[in-house]
């Protein structure tokens, strides 16, 4: 039997795969989360590249004028240090952002936070959040719900645990969205909850563009536009709005594995 025949035999033998693996591959497709940053990664990368080019030129120009090759700290009002370098990790296909200034020590800020009301400086002032580097547009991890609130001004009134999770991660998207990830004991992601002013995100908040088989709109007191999605009476995703006195917030819940209707509605009610 030659290699081709063996390969054909292997192909045939795959028909004997366990039912659970067939069922798994037939389960509703869960597209990889597409965060707004990732969605526009090409555009952002182009802007970042242009900024890096300009900054590089500016730094060289400055050095050549001053004759100094040690890097003086930029002036506090300098625009040069606000550049970001974006790196796409080919192995994980995940987009990550690091400040160019973080990697190039000669471009970091020192000193104290100024009483600037910009998002960049608010983020910068959170202890340990971004070190000494101002970040123009980034995803920043917070150490706790309280720290997340301090960064964003958005209350993270989320459940302590979802689906038996044992740990949580908190993220602030500097365009105005917060995210809490719930993980199991192996650090596998179980569930993601997001919240942002509805005016900022609208339908984009879950970052989930899968076409689900089933959509339902349950009535839940005090909430608007509640929608849950999944298949075969199991649910992966929910979105809804909740009005407060000052703002209407959009929420999303996104599960890695499907849950029952009662479970997803329960999390919606706990979150709002």
């Amino acid at each position: 039997m030659d290699n081709r025949q063996q390969a054909e035999r292997l192909l045939r033998a795959l028909s004997e795969a366990d039912d659970r693996y067939i069922e798994e591959a037939l389960s509703p497709a869960r597209k990889a989360a597409v965060t707004p940053l990732r969605k526009y990664s090409g555009f952002i990368a182009a802007i970042a590249a242009a900024l890096i080019f300009l900054i590089g030129g500016g730094v060289l120009f400055k050095l050549s004028n001053t004759g100094r090759n040690d890097s003086a700290r930029p002036e506090a009002d300098s625009e040069e240090t606000f550049a970001e370098a974006m790196y796409i990790d080919a192995a994980s296909d995940e987009l990550s952002i690091r400040s160019a200034a973080t990697e190039a020590n000669d471009m970091t800020y020192g000193g104290e936070c100024e009483e600037d009301t910009s998002d960049e400086t608010v983020a910068e002032c959170i202890d340990g959040a971004v070190g000494e580097t101002p970040v123009a547009n980034a995803v920043i991890e917070a150490g706790s719900a309280e720290e997340l609130y301090a960064m964003s001004g958005i209350g993270a009134d989320f459940p302590d645990s979802v689906n038996g999770s044992v740990s949580t991660r908190y993220y602030y998207y500097s365009f105005g969205m917060i995210e809490v990830q719930y993980l199991d004991k192996h650090d596998n992601l179980l569930c993601t909850i997001r919240k942002a002013p509805a005016s900022e995100v609208q339908a984009d908040i879950p970052g989930d563009y899968a076409d689900y088989v089933m959509y339902e709109q349950p009535d839940i007191d005090g909430l608007q536009n509640v929608m849950i999605a999944g298949a075969d009476d199991r649910f992966f995703m929910a979105t809804w709005n909740c009005e407060t006195q000052d703002e209407t917030y959009a929420y999303s819940v996104w599960y890695e594995s499907s849950v029952s209707r009662d479970d997803i509605v329960d999390v919606i009610m706990q979150t709002s």
Partner: peptide
């Protein structure tokens, strides 16, 4: 089939069909 040929070591060309056991292959897969 062409892609799965990559999984087949060269020595397999010397094997006969009788050497293969469907149940064993199912278990391995």
């Amino acid at each position: 089939i062409e892609e799965l040929e990559e999984c087949i070591p060269d020595e397999s060309a010397q094997r006969t069909d009788d050497d293969s056991d469907s149940e064993e292959l199912k278990r391995i897969i």
